[in-house]
């Protein structure tokens, strides 16, 4: 569905140039749900704007839905849907009128556009709002309208730029319900950007992490987490003297001790423990199986463990492992939506 090679975009700014996207290589197969993850300013939106023909690339090529974004932007536009970061409906226009206009923009006849407008109104539970103006809708309703506008022409590929940003948890869950249903019912290829880690983790089957205009990781969330961050065991020992022998045992069991550097332990509970009692943090492949094994080994060696816990990694740990920075510093943390 999407094939990009060496896509770059440079913006001229006062006193020089900024490379927003530097050499993007990307292949997305039909039917995939891809989350494009990265901090603000990483190049997510710029990439999306290039792939949707809104912005010509400085260099590089890409075919989207079988059409070249530079040579045949109109062909790309006819085959994709795009739901931007901002609200797509004009303030002066009624909800249904905008949906009809949208259908007309894609070449539907008046009658077809009317039928289709009513269909998407039903699909996104917007019927009661058909004659209202966007300004009178709630944030969640407006976002549903944006999605409805993007669906009028039944695109096989849909780009969504931060579809759930700024919404309350309930509306976010509702938006996701619609997005996932779309995929289940029509097999739509979905390419979305988000800076909500939990969303990318829970919803996308493929996560692409972008930073400073480059792709730094690409895979399933599970894969990325186990490859790049890994599970952790956190053990609280009773005496400081046991730390060294416990660490040796951990290494012997294929664990990597990560404790001595408190800067790389973002887990707040670990830090609070370490103030009073010795804490050992060990990276392992699978925390659930490693813990009993390790506890037995420590017991045999006569080392007393006061507390033990396992931590599954998050995509933030992945980002941290890759860049040394936390995504949370830039993105706003919000409660996890229910899929």
């Amino acid at each position: 569905m999407i094939h990009a090679r060496g896509l770059t975009r440079r913006f001229k700014v006062r006193g020089g140039a900024v490379d927003a996207v530097r050499g993007l290589d990307l292949d997305v197969a039909a039917g995939q749900l891809v989350a494009f993850l990265g901090p603000n300013g990483a190049g997510k939106s710029t990439s999306l704007r290039m792939l949707t023909s809104l912005l010509p690339p400085t260099s590089g090529t890409a075919t989207v839905a079988g059409r070249d974004i530079v040579k045949d932007p109109a062909g790309v536009r006819a085959r994709i849907g795009y739901i931007g970061q901002k609200n797509g409906a004009g303030e002066n226009f009624r909800v249904r009128d905008e949906l009809i206009t949208q259908g007309r923009c894609y070449g539907l006849t008046r009658a077809q556009a009317r039928t289709r407008a009513d269909e998407v109104l039903t699909q996104l539970d917007l019927e009661p709002l058909a004659t209202r103006k966007p300004g009178t809708l709630s944030g969640g309703q407006r976002r549903r309208l944006d999605i409805a506008l993007g669906l009028v022409h039944r695109p096989a590929l849909l780009f969504l730029d931060e579809p759930s940003t700024g919404l309350d948890p309930q509306s976010r869950a509702n938006i996701w319900e619609h997005i996932l249903r779309l995929r289940a019912e029509h097999g739509t290829t979905l390419f979305l950007t988000t800076h909500y880690l939990e969303e990318a983790d829970a919803m996308a089957e493929r996560v692409i992490i972008i930073d400073h205009g480059r792709i730094i990781a690409d895979g399933t969330a599970t894969q990325l987490k186990s490859d790049l961050a890994g599970d952790h065991l956190t053990l609280t020992l009773s005496t400081e003297a046991d730390l060294a022998p416990a660490a040796t045992i951990a290494e012997r069991l294929n664990g990597t001790v990560t404790t001595p550097d408190p800067a790389t332990t973002p887990d707040p509970p670990t830090r609070s423990h370490s103030a009073t009692s010795p804490v050992l943090r060990i990276r392992v492949t699978r925390a659930d199986t490693a813990l009993p094994e390790y506890l037995r080994a420590l017991d045999t060696a006569g080392i007393k463990v006061a507390a033990a816990e396992t931590t599954r990694p998050t995509l933030d740990d992945v980002f941290l492992a890759l860049t040394g920075r936390s995504l949370r510093e830039t993105g706003t943390q919000v409660p996890e939506p229910t899929p």
């Binding site: 809104l54 994709i80 795009y82 931007g84 970061q85 797509g88 905008e98 923009c105 944006d146 506008l149």
Partner: peptide, 20 residues
């Protein structure tokens, strides 16, 4: 002015992605 409002909001962008 009406065009400016649409440019600042997202509706112009939405229409620019259509084949219009």
């Amino acid at each position: 002015y009406t065009l400016l409002v649409e440019l600042i909001g997202g509706s112009m962008e939405r229409m620019l992605v259509t084949p219009l």
